[in-house]
């Protein structure tokens, strides 16, 4: 259960390189015309990838205890509940059941 001792700084430097590349990628992708929901989804996927790299390697969740992994995953789950129910409201707000409203 002990956290693995990282003997070299090289893996951290590689993660930093990947994060900087993904930043350049998200800026570049923003100028490409993907159309309405897709541009945001591309930005979201790149941001989620960057966040995952930070959580796994910089925050050492890779190799941490199960309790920490559950807590980290739990924060993502709680946020997902928040956004899923909000989106359900936003995306269906203008849909009226026949016979109700005008």
């Amino acid at each position: 259960m002990a956290e693995p001792r990282q003997h070299s700084l090289l893996p951290y430097a590689l993660v930093l390189g990947a994060l900087l590349l993904l930043t350049a990628l998200t800026v570049g992708a923003a100028y490409v015309h993907f159309g309405h929901p897709w541009s945001d989804l591309v930005a979201l996927v790149i941001a989620l990838t960057k966040a995952t790299l930070v959580v796994l390697f910089f925050m050492h969740v890779k190799g941490s205890t199960t309790a920490v992994k559950i807590t980290a995953a739990g924060s993502v789950l709680w946020l997902a509940i928040l956004f899923a129910f909000l989106m359900a409201d936003i995306l269906t707000r203008h849909t009226l059941v026949p016979g109700w409203g005008s």
Binding site: A30, Y31, V32, D40, A43, A51, F58
Partner: peptide, 29 residues
Amino acid sequence: VEGFGLYWHFVDIVWIFLFPFLYLIGLST
């Protein structure tokens, strides 16, 4: 030190989401 590191990386992650959704929307329209 390690616990504080977690906090600092968390703040970094918040910015990772703030940057594209504040600065980069509508650039291709």
